[in-house]
Nucleic acid binder design. Sequence first.
DNA 1: CCTCAAACATGACCTAGATCATAAATTGGT
DNA 2: ACCAATTTATGATCTAGGTCATGTTTGAGG
Lengths: 193, 193
Amino acid sequence: MNIQHLIDKGLKLKNYPKDAVIYEPGMQPRFVYFIKSGEVRMITVSDEGKEFIQGVFKTGQYFGEPALLIDRPYLAFTIANKDSQLIVVNKEDFFKLIKNEPDFSMELIRTLSKRLFYKSMMLEELASEKADHRLLTIINYLLGDINVGENLKVTRQELADMTGLRVETVIRGIKILAEKGLIKILKGKIVKL
Amino acid sequence: MNIQHLIDKGLKLKNYPKDAVIYEPGMQPRFVYFIKSGEVRMITVSDEGKEFIQGVFKTGQYFGEPALLIDRPYLAFTIANKDSQLIVVNKEDFFKLIKNEPDFSMELIRTLSKRLFYKSMMLEELASEKADHRLLTIINYLLGDINVGENLKVTRQELADMTGLRVETVIRGIKILAEKGLIKILKGKIVKL
DNA sequence: CCTCAAACATGACCTAGATCATAAATTGGT
DNA sequence: ACCAATTTATGATCTAGGTCATGTTTGAGG
């Protein structure tokens, strides 16, 4: 189950420029989106305008299934982080995919499990832990994706939007974590060691 | 795909008395648990001992798959809320179930999607909204499961453990919501109207 | 190598909700 | 119906982190 496979099947490709909104809260879901190229962020926005990053999806990944599968309006905005090419798969085709491609079905189950795992972890953090602990947890989580010596390409604002904190708190928190030796900062960037 | 079907297949049934621990954080997952009877709560506990209710599972439901599927140690405790009979399905049998029973596989995908939806909603609440808003959100969510005139069989402590708040805050918050007419209280219990 | 916007940084408050203490009201088991 | 345990209630503090204000540093594009 890969993107090329979907293209071969004649599914439509759609272009979204950076910052384009793919869907908004309240909309009834009709498609699942596979990312051929680019990157997308899924965010919820509170009444007071505070943003929370629910997830980031990159080339090769897909998004939008849960709402479609349980037939409930979207909760989040999905916005292109960069110019992106998405394969738009409608409901029937997506269901066919699940039915006829056992590998895809298994892969989907694993993907949903992984996301659930991440959300459970974050819920525990937001519900029970204080700023520094929260910060250290996402930082370590994000460091898992990169190699030793590399640094996190994430702004403090983004960390704030992933943890429910405010930038100032993230800035102060990161300094404390660095002082305690729990993370390593180089030129302002968090590096994996 | 139902419980009887699993029993017919000769899968083992295990009894857990009220308050028995089914699994703990850090354990490597080996089984998926189907609830024949009883009820189970999944909770995470912070270093300072604060509990957070990740989910409650009832007769006919199952739990423990995500960690098993992605092969990561459990994050949570799972504890019997009442005396419970569980069908313990090992990894291979569970994978067979997914492969050979297309209906089950679809059902699982829907179940995971539903849980993901709930967790996304709660994450947004915990990250961005203040006490009263959070409270109103889970209350309305919980009211969705019962009939008009019935009341929520949930203590304020449990609401606290689902929202990351403290009992006192929940008690005060509920009073405010009732005063504003956003919920109805009868004999201390929240009723659906 | 400039320039300007974005990203960091830091100090001085302020407030929602935690914490602590104490007591009244329900509930369930015998 | 009674008693112990649990749950609800309320007032008095305290504090982590939000908010606001005002810099400084960094880095991408001309």
